[in-house]
Design a protein around this nucleic acid. Structure first.
Length: 658
RNA sequence: GGCGGCGUAGCUCAGUUGGUCAGAGCAACCGGUUCAUACCCGGUAGGUCGGCGGUUCGAGUCCGCCCGCCGCUACCA
C-alpha cells in the first residue's frame, strides 16, 4: 500500500527557523501524526535548501567555508524541529550527493527531449531574491523592486525550461482537480497567473559555482536553484536508485508551504517539470497564510521575527510549566490560530490567552478535576457499574468525527474547536449532575458514573490532541494510567476503563499563567490614531495627541517592560529627504544600534555626537525613510522643541535606567 | 487599471447548496457552584451581518453598483 507522503518546503539556511517556517513544519507534523494515528503509513519529508547562491554569499560574508556554514545551519534546523516535537522521516539536504545526481539526471533527460533548450539571457538580476527583472520593471536606481538591493546586469547564454508548453495542460489539471491547490484563494491566484501566459524559465545561472553544475556543460554555470530545490521531493522517494520502488511513496499526498511560493513555483513550475518527466502530480498543494506582527509582515529588517523556541521557553518560565508542554502549547497556538486564506496576527498576548483559556482552564482543568474526584471519592479506582451516558457517547462520537474531517482538510482551527466542545460538554455535565453533591447524598454509584464520562472524555481527547500536542497527549494518558495514547479508532470506545482500573495522581500539566493586574482603565483605540502612529517617533510627537490622559495609571510591571539604557552617540547624520530626522549610531554597551530621531530642527549632527542619552531599547523597530530605527531616544519636550537629557556624569554606555 | 478575496457583537472570528443564521470563543458586568489550576456553569451584547439597489414568498447567504482594506498582476493609450 502506498505511503502517505507529506512534505514541507526545504528551507533556506541563511536564517534560523522563525514562527513562519515553524508554522509550516508544525502543520506538516500535525498532518503526519494525524494520518499515522489513523493507521496509515506516513512518509514525512522536510529539509534544507543549501544550493542557493544567496547561501554561498552569506557564508562568504561571514568568512565561513560554505559547506561548514550549511552543515551548521542544517543542524540548527534539525535541532529546532526536534525541540518542537517534529517527527519527520527524512531530513533532506540539497547538498547531498544523491540529490545532486537527481538534479543532473532530470536536467539531462529534459534536455534530451528538448524540454530544456539553450538560449541566452539578458536582464537585471537580484541575487538576494534569485529573480530576474525585465528592464521596464526597474527604475534608474537599479535596485530590486522587491527587496531594494542593487541589481546586477546579466548577459549570458543559458538554458530554458519549456514551461510555456505546459500552460494549457496545467490549466486543465487545476480546473479538473479542485483539491489540487488549496485553499481556493491560492487556486484562483494560480489560474490568474497561468492565464497571463507562462514564459519559459531560465534554469541555469552563471556567476556562482555553488550548486549543481549544468551537466555536461559546466561553462553554463549551475542549475537554477528553484529547479534544483523542487526536485528534492523526488530525490527523497528514491526515484533515481529504487527502480519502480519509489512508487510506494510517489506522488506526494500533501505538500505544504507558505502562500508566497505556491502559485509560481509549486503550482506551475513544479507540476510542469513532473509532466515533462511523465510522473504523476501531487494530490494536494496547500499554501497557508503568513503570520503578521502588529499589523506588519514579519521581516528581519523590521526585527519583529520571533524564534519559536524562545517563545515556548518564555512561556515555560512565566507559567512554571515543563518546557515540553510549553512547546506543545506553542504548537497548539500555531494550529489553533493558523492563517489559512488571510494572514493572521501572531502575538504573545494571544498565545497566553490560548494557554490560560483553552489549555489550563479547559483541557488541563477538566483532567485535573476528574482525577481529583476519582481519588477523593473512589481511591483512584474505577468503580463498579460505571458506564457512559448514551447522550454523551453520541456527542463524543460526533465531535470526534467533526475533528477528523477538519484535520483531514488541514483545517486545524476548526478541528480543535470541535474537539474542545467535548470539554465544554463534560464541564456542563458535571455542573448539572454535581457528583460532589451526589456523594454527599450517598449516591456513590451515580457519582462514579458521572465521573466516568470525564475519564472517557480525557482519554478521547488525548487521542484527538496527539497530532497537535504529542507530549501532552502522552501525559494525559499517563495520568489515566493507560499504556499509550489510544489510536484514533480506539479512542471513541466508551468502555475503555475496566472496573478497578487505577488512576495516577492528578498533576497540572499547564500551570495557570498569573494574569497581570489589569490597568484601572483600559484605553480604547480611537479612530484615526493609527494614521498618526506612522509618523516619525520623534520625542515630541506625543504632544500632538493632545488629550493624553493624566489620570491613567500603570502598574510597576507595566513600567518594568520598558528597557531604557544610556547610549553614547557615535555618529549622527541627517536623513536624506527629511527635515526633522537624524540618523544616530549608538553604542548601547557593546552593542551598536541605529535609531532615527526627530531632532534635526533643534540639533545639528555634530552637536549630538559624543553625547550620552537615554534610549528606549525594546521598542518595536520601525522602518522610517528606509532606515530601520531600533529604539527611541528620550528627550524633554519644551513647546515642541526637543531638549536632550544627559546623565549627571560620564557613565558606561548601556547603563540601565529605572 | 485588471483579476481574486475580505468587510458579521469591544476583540478574534464561525456561518455548507438562500428559509430557527443573527452565532461561538475571549474581554466586561451580574448571578450560581465549590470537585478542580481564583476553576467551572448560567445570564447580560439594543450587532442596520460595509453602503445602496435588485432577484425571490423569503438573502450575511445570489446579482449590480458604490465605499474601505488586503493579495496577485499590469503599469498601458
Amino acid at each position: 500500500m502506498k505511503r502517505y507522503y507529506i512534505t514541507t518546503p526545504i528551507y533556506y539556511v541563511n536564517s534560523a527557523p522563525h514562527i513562519g517556517t515553524a508554522l509550516t513544519t508544525i502543520v506538516a507534523d500535525a498532518c503526519a501524526r494525524f494520518q499515522k494515528r489513523r493507521g496509515r503509513e506516513v512518509y514525512f519529508l522536510t529539509g534544507t535548501d543549501e544550493n542557493a547562491p544567496k547561501v554561498h554569499r552569506v557564508a562568504q560574508e561571514r568568512g565561513v567555508p560554505t559547506q561548514l556554514f550549511v552543515d551548521e545551519m542544517a543542524e540548527v534546523f534539525e535541532r529546532t524541529w526536534s525541540a518542537l516535537h517534529i517527527e519527520y522521516d527524512v531530513f533532506i539536504r540539497t547538498t547531498e550527493a544523491r540529490h545532486k545526481h537527481v538534479v543532473s539526471e532530470v536536467f539531462r533527460r529534459l534536455r534530451e527531449q528538448d524540454d530544456i533548450y539553450r538560449g541566452s539571457y539578458q536582464g537585471w538580476y537580484c541575487i538576494s531574491c534569485e529573480t530576474f527583472f525585465a528592464s521596464n520593471k526597474i527604475d534608474e536606481s537599479r535596485t530590486c523592486p522587491d527587496c531594494g538591493k542593487p541589481l546586477e546586469w546579466r548577459d549570458e547564454p543559458c538554458y530554458y525550461f519549456r514551461l510555456s508548453a505546459y500552460e494549457s495542460r496545467l490549466r486543465e489539471h487545476i480546473k479538473a482537480n479542485p483539491q489540487f491547490i488549496q485553499p481556493e484563494v491560492r487556486r484562483n491566484e494560480t489560474l490568474g497567473f497561468i492565464n497571463e501566459g507562462l514564459q519559459d524559465v531560465a534554469v541555469s545561472r552563471t556567476g556562482s559555482d555553488w550548486g549543481v553544475p549544468v551537466p555536461d556543460d559546466p561553462e553554463s554555470g549551475v542549475v537554477y536553484v528553484w529547479f534544483d530545490a523542487l526536485l528534492n521531493y523526488l530525490t527523497a522517494t528514491g526515484w533515481r536508485e529504487r527502480g519502480e520502488g519509489y512508487l510506494d511513496t510517489w506522488p506526494p499526498d500533501l505538500q505544504l508551504m507558505g502562500k508566497d511560493i505556491l502559485p509560481r513555483f509549486h503550482a506551475t513550475l513544479w507540476p510542469a517539470m513532473l509532466m515533462a518527466l511523465g510522473l504523476p502530480l501531487p494530490e494536494r498543494l496547500y499554501g497557508h497564510g503568513w503570520w503578521i506582527v502588529n499589523k506588519q509582515k514579519m521581516s528581519k529588517s523590521l526585527g519583529n521575527v520571533y524564534a519559536p523556541l524562545e517563545v515556548a521557553q518564555s512561556l515555560a518560565n512565566a507559567a512554571g510549566c515543563e518546557l515540553d508542554y510549553a512547546v506543545d502549547a506553542f504548537r497548539y497556538y500555531m494550529l489553533r490560530e493558523m492563517p489559512t486564506d488571510a494572514d493572521a496576527e501572531f502575538s504573545l498576548e494571544g498565545f497566553e490567552a490560548r494557554y490560560n483559556g483553552d489549555l489550563a482552564n479547559d483541557l488541563g482543568n477538566l483532567l485535573h478535576r476528574t482525577l481529583s474526584m476519582m481519588h477523593r471519592y473512589f481511591g483512584g479506582r474505577v468503580p463498579d457499574g460505571a458506564r457512559l451516558d448514551a447522550g454523551l457517547a453520541d456527542l463524543f462520537a460526533q465531535q470526534a468525527a467533526q475533528t477528523t474531517e477538519a484535520f483531514e482538510a488541514v483545517d486545524f482551527p476548526h478541528g480543535l474547536r470541535e474537539a474542545w466542545q467535548i470539554i465544554g460538554a463534560v464541564n456542563r455535565y458535571y455542573d448539572e449532575q454535581a457528583p460532589w453533591t451526589l456523594m454527599k447524598q450517598g449516591n456513590a454509584a451515580r457519582a462514579g458514573q458521572v465521573l466516568y464520562a470525564g475519564l472517557i472524555a480525557a482519554r478521547l481527547l488525548s487521542a484527538l490532541v496527539e497530532p497537535v500536542m504529542p507530549k501532552v497527549a502522552r501525559e494525559i494518558a499517563r495520568q489515566l494510567n493507560l499504556a499509550a495514547v489510544p489510536s484514533w479508532n480506539e479512542a471513541i470506545a466508551v468502555n475503555a476503563f475496566p472496573v478497578g482500573h487505577t488512576l495516577q495522581e492528578p498533576k497540572p500539566i499547564f500551570p495557570r499563567l498569573q494574569v497581570k493586574q489589569p490597568a484601572p482603565s483600559t484605553p480604547t483605540p480611537h479612530a484615526g490614531e493609527e494614521g498618526r502612529a506612522v509618523s516619525a517617533p520623534s520625542p515630541t510627537s506625543h504632544t500632538h495627541q493632545g488629550v493624553s490622559n493624566m489620570q491613567d495609571t500603570i502598574t510597576i510591571d507595566d513600567f518594568k517592560r520598558l528597557q531604557i539604557r544610556i547610549a553614547t552617540v557615535k555618529a549622527a547624520e541627517p536623513v536624506p529627504k527629511s527635515t526633522k530626522l537624524l540618523k544616530l549610531t549608538l553604542d548601547v554597551g557593546g552593542e551598536e544600534r541605529t535609531i532615527v530621531a526627530g531632532i534635526a530642527e533643534d540639533y545639528a549632527p555634530e552637536q549630538v555626537v559624543g553625547k550620552q542619552i537615554p534610549v528606549l531599547v525594546n521598542l518595536q523597530p520601525a522602518l522610517i525613510r528606509g532606515i530601520v530605527s531600533e529604539g527611541m531616544m528620550l528627550a524633554a519636550d519644551v513647546d515642541g522643541k526637543a531638549v536632550l537629557l544627559h546623565p549627571d556624569r560620564e557613565i558606561p554606555s548601556g547603563s540601565g535606567v529605572r
